[in-house]
Design a protein around this nucleic acid. Structure first.
Lengths: 227, 227
DNA sequence: ACCTAGCTGTCATAAAAATGTCATAATTAT
DNA sequence: ATAATTATGACATTTTTATGACAGCTAGGT
């Protein structure tokens, strides 16, 4: 995962505390004491979120937020404003300018992480999860159910993802490595042969229609209605 | 409260004006230039209202309204149509298809907000106050009572809200985080695992029918009559 | 202000399910 | 027949969920 989060905050102690919390939670923290410093982090690959202090010495938070929301590269990056207590009315301005949330200092690590996750969740709505159908197999990502000829089938998480991938990418051979990338996710270290085993489990689970999961000797596997 | 309102309007200037007005009034504005773009906003948590332009380049407003009123997720979202002057007869069609109100461009911010509030006021009670039933479970928000096979069941506040949410959103998997968002409310910071515990309490409280509260390993929980 | 009872969130631990790997059998290609 | 490749069953480990216990909190009552 290793998502990058940019911190724009002039006070070093607070910044370091934020870094600590973020790294503790599996994020990569980028530090900037000013808007200028921040620039060098605003290049590809761009951070997924920005924590922006409201009170900065030179440029005000409002201006930074505004210019962030104008740049093509940065306009879609959600911003969480950090304000001191009692700057309530800044909240209004902040949200107007395009901040996605704001947080009053001091705050707990728990609150910080909760807000970050909430914002990220809000910004990246789950893709259009449409049900897929193929020759009697129906897979519905919304209810997370799979039926074969209208009979419910129990699948483990990996089997489910594997079948979903196959059904959305039919008539195409995928090597074991490719399947690992797509279904298991990148940077997962497992044996190629593990794919074979999951394929077998999936075939067993879906019964007769498993003829659609085809072995392509020397190449990998393919999902297809025709043999 | 941060209610989301979705704007479907192809002309950017008008859209931006709407955004400005809405945010000024404490709503969160979502923008879409086409029906397609709108899709990505039509996922949980769903907007509370949709402002829909009548004249869109590709699909007509009527069609959009129609398909919105068919989707399970979207059918209860009120729609305000935006029409140009002189398209009077469209009003008829619009209301037929399920629009809740319509407004002729140009309009003042005051009028816009007034209509939005009126529509929300009109819609809210029916949506929220209605009793829900599912396979022997009856939950009545008005009397705040729950019966299972006509026997009264005692629920704590959180259990009640959780059950209510499930019953009004059946056959859908929700992650722990999503449940926290919907049932506990945003800006509440509790552990994911807390959901497990409340689920257990709710299951224990409702007795045999707890088979409807289903664990979906690796994904979350689901409420459904069928297993 | 001081109790009390009910709710809630968290933690520790138990239980269950899923997963990766290996050894071996079966199949296919050369 | 031999080598290469895939299928399968078994098993240990890891991951995920269920459960019980407990302490803090809150609202209502005295």
């Amino acid at each position: 995962m290793m998502n990058k989060i940019l911190i724009i905050e002039d006070e070093a102690p607070i910044r370091e505390m934020l870094v600590f919390i973020l790294e503790q939670n599996g994020y990569q923290a980028l530090e900037a004491g000013s808007f200028e410093e921040a620039q060098r982090h605003l290049v590809e690959p761009v951070p997924v979120l920005i924590l922006l202090d409201w009170m900065l010495p030179d440029v005000s938070g409002i201006q930074i937020a505004k210019s962030l929301k104008q740049g093509d590269l940065t306009k879609h990056i959600p911003i969480i404003m950090l304000t001191a207590k009692g700057e309530e009315e800044d909240k209004i301005k902040g949200l107007e300018v395009g901040a996605d949330d704001y947080m009053t200092k001091p705050f707990s690590p728990k609150e910080l992480m909760a807000r970050i996750k909430a914002v990220l969740r809000r910004v990246a709505p789950t893709a259009i999860e449409e049900a897929v159908e193929a020759d009697g197999i129906i897979l519905d990502p919304v209810s997370h159910r799979v039926t074969v000829h209208n009979k419910l089938v129990e699948l483990g998480p990996t089997e489910f993802r594997l079948l979903h991938f196959f059904m959305t990418h039919p008539d195409r051979v995928y090597s074991r490595e490719q399947l690992l990338d797509h279904v298991w996710g990148t940077n997962v270290y497992v044996e190629d042969r593990t794919v074979d085993v999951q394929i077998r489990r999936l075939r067993k689970a879906i019964g007769e229609v498993n003829t659609m999961i085809q072995t392509v000797r020397g190449s990998g596997y393919r999902f297809s209605k025709t043999t």
